[in-house]
């Protein structure tokens, strides 16, 4: 019986490790090529050639620093903050699952990059705006 229980425990630990690995690879950072995004609304773009849309939540401790980082690194771009809990339809339209999630949109509203998490933003910005 102890052996059976040991196998069950090992199976659980293996499943946990596998789930963690799959989840991390699924969420891993930069996704430049997701085709399914709708256009970013013109009200957010406000005519800018390039707009960073930062999806935040009231629970997000890293969203403020991310926003500051974007403003400092890309001063020519517009940076707008969207509280996903106050704009649930917008969050749902862009499949926002966690904060911060950052979208980079061109002047026509096409999403050209999607960054999930502060680390992804840091690495993306460091690579393109050194």
């Amino acid at each position: 019986m102890f052996l059976v229980r040991g196998v069950v425990v090992l199976a659980i630990l293996f499943a946990v490790a596998l789930a963690g690995r799959l989840y991390r690879s699924w969420r891993a950072g930069v996704r430049d090529d997701r085709p399914a995004h709708p256009l970013v609304p013109a009200s957010l773009l406000a005519g800018a050639a390039r707009t960073w849309v930062v999806f935040t939540s009231p629970y997000c401790a890293t969203c403020g620093p991310v926003e500051d980082r974007l403003r400092a690194s890309d001063p020519d771009a517009r940076v707008v903050k969207v509280d996903a809990t106050r704009e649930p339809h917008l969050a749902a339209a862009f499949s926002i699952r966690s904060a911060p999630t950052v979208l980079l949109a061109d002047g026509a509203g096409n999403v050209t990059a999607r960054l999930v998490g502060a680390e992804a933003v840091d690495s993306y910005v460091a690579a393109r705006y050194p």
């Binding site: 659980i12 499943a15 789930a19 629970y59 996903a84």
Partner: peptide
């Protein structure tokens, strides 16, 4: 109990907190 253990182990080792995600999903709605 093992369901709780598995989710707790997942959260402790990877930071993926399923209960927290459910809370956030409810908060968005």
């Amino acid at each position: 109990a093992l369901m709780v253990a598995a989710l707790a182990a997942l959260s402790a080792t990877t930071g993926i907190c399923v209960g927290c995600e459910i809370y956030l999903a409810l908060a968005r709605r």
